[in-house]
C-alpha cells in the first residue's frame, strides 16, 4: 500500500514539473518535451494504481489504459514535432512569439 502511494505521489510531482515546463519554456521543442514529461507523470500514476489493492497480481485495466495512452502520446508528439519543424522553416524560429503580426 505505501509503495503504491509513493509511486502515485511521484507521478503527481512529475506531472506538476511537466506543467511548469509547458508554461515556462519558450522553445517549442522544450514545450513538447515538457508535455511528454506531464504524460509520463500520468502514466506513472496509472501504472502504480494497478497495484493499489495488494492482490497476488496487478489490475490489468490501468495497464491497458497506460498502453493506449502511450500510443496516443507518441502520435501526438510526432505531430507536434512535425508542426514545430514547419514553424521553424516558415518563420525561422521555433517559438510561439510574433504570431499575431
Amino acid at each position: 500500500m505505501t509503495m503504491f502511494l509513493a509511486y502515485a505521489v511521484t507521478g503527481m510531482i512529475v506531472f506538476a514539473i511537466g506543467l511548469y515546463g509547458v508554461v515556462i519554456a519558450r522553445h517549442l521543442l522544450r514545450k513538447i518535451i515538457a508535455l511528454n514529461i506531464m504524460a509520463g507523470g500520468v502514466f506513472l500514476f496509472l501504472i502504480s494504481i494497478a497495484a493499489r489493492n495488494s492482490q497476488a497480481f496487478p489490475d490489468p485495466v490501468p495497464q491497458a489504459m497506460l498502453l493506449t495512452g502511450v500510443v496516443v502520446a507518441l502520435s501526438a508528439t510526432a505531430f507536434a514535432i512535425a508542426l514545430a519543424r514547419r514553424i521553424y522553416t516558415v518563420t525561422g524560429s521555433a517559438t510561439l512569439s510574433d504570431g499575431e503580426r
Binding site: F15, K31, V42, F45, L46, T91, G99
Partner: peptide, 25 residues
Amino acid sequence: TVLIAGMRYLIAAMLGSMSYLLGVA
C-alpha cells in the same frame, strides 16, 4: 499565422486531455 495558431491550439488541446486523463485515473 495559422501554423503558430495551430501550435497554440495543439498545446492547449494536449494539456486539456492530459488533465482529463489524470482525473479519470
